[in-house]
């Protein structure tokens, strides 16, 4: 096995021993099924806890399964991305601060192999957790509302995965710049929030922004097709992920010292 493979396996074993492989999918699943369940019980909840005068009749239109799933994704847009950032932020900084990085790099591991193994291992874990939780949400939606077409589920899953990868790559990149995980999380979340904000403030000029993956995925679910700017967004997200990744590798190469 080459160094990339060794480091990749080490990341997965580490996540298993840290129980990250347990809490990450569990937290994501809870987050995902919250939407269909709470929407389903909304009338009862309003009735019991709404403090409405007796006799008030509430009529909430029953959402379609597609709308419920779109709602699930928008839940992910806030909390899910925070989980992504928090789970990735320390992966480089911790090894750097403890000094174990110097024992790795003295064995002539290239920065590309090191960052690449981190990226790949985190991507596998995050995307697998996300896919599992999303499919669970689809299952509940099918039980409580109606079955959503598989093509729409898979297409929205794919597009949204790109946004998760983007957030993860940003965090990994910030991880090569800073040594404190608080700062890494702060910078990453600020950048992601700024991008989302700009996209909603200047939709005309921000068609390329990867943050549009959220609205594109929702549109795909409810309408069956994304808007016209979807290809532009897909290409720019892929390019940005690659650019940030190689910038992180370049930044890592410029380290004066690994401890």
């Amino acid at each position: 096995m080459n160094s990339f493979g060794t480091l990749f396996v080490k990341e997965l074993v580490e996540a298993w021993r840290d129980k990250k492989l347990v809490w990450l999918p569990v937290v994501m699943c809870i987050l995902a099924i919250l939407q269909p369940i709470s929407l389903y019980y909304m009338p009862q909840i309003m009735n019991k806890a709404g403090n409405l005068p007796p006799g008030t009749e509430i009529k909430i239109p029953v959402p379609t399964g597609e709308e419920v799933l779109a709602g699930t994704l928008s839940q992910f847009g806030v909390l899910g991305i925070a989980i992504v950032v928090l789970s990735v932020m320390g992966s480089i900084a911790a090894e750097r601060n403890s000094g174990v990085l110097s024992l790795i790099m003295v064995r002539r591991v290239s920065p590309l192999q090191y960052i690449g193994s981190k990226w790949a291992a985190q991507a596998v874990m995050l995307l697998a957790s996300f896919a599992a939780s999303y499919l669970l949400a689809c299952y509940y939606t099918a039980l409580l509302f109606n079955q959503v077409a598989w093509t729409r589920i898979l297409a929205s899953l794919g597009i949204y995965s790109l946004w998760i990868l983007f957030a993860m790559t940003i965090t990994l990149g910030a991880g090569t710049l800073l040594r404190k995980s608080g700062g890494i999380a702060g910078i990453s979340l600020a950048f992601i929030a700024a991008l989302s904000l700009c996209s909603s403030l200047f939709p005309r000029f921000m068609k390329w922004s990867p943050s549009n993956a959220q609205s594109q995925a929702a549109k795909l679910l409810t309408e069956g097709a994304g808007s016209a700017s979807l290809p532009v967004m897909l290409v720019s997200a892929a390019v940005l992920i690659a650019v940030i990744f190689f910038a992180a590798v370049a930044c890592f190469k410029r380290y004066e010292t690994y401890s």
Binding site: M1, S3, T6, L7, K10, E14, R17, D18, S98, G99, V100, L103, I104, R107, R108, V109
Partner: peptide, 20 residues
Amino acid sequence: PSFFRWMTAREFLQFAGRLS
């Protein structure tokens, strides 16, 4: 020297050896 706390001594040597 600093290592991964979650590894055993034997595991770390295996890991280091594979990297080399």
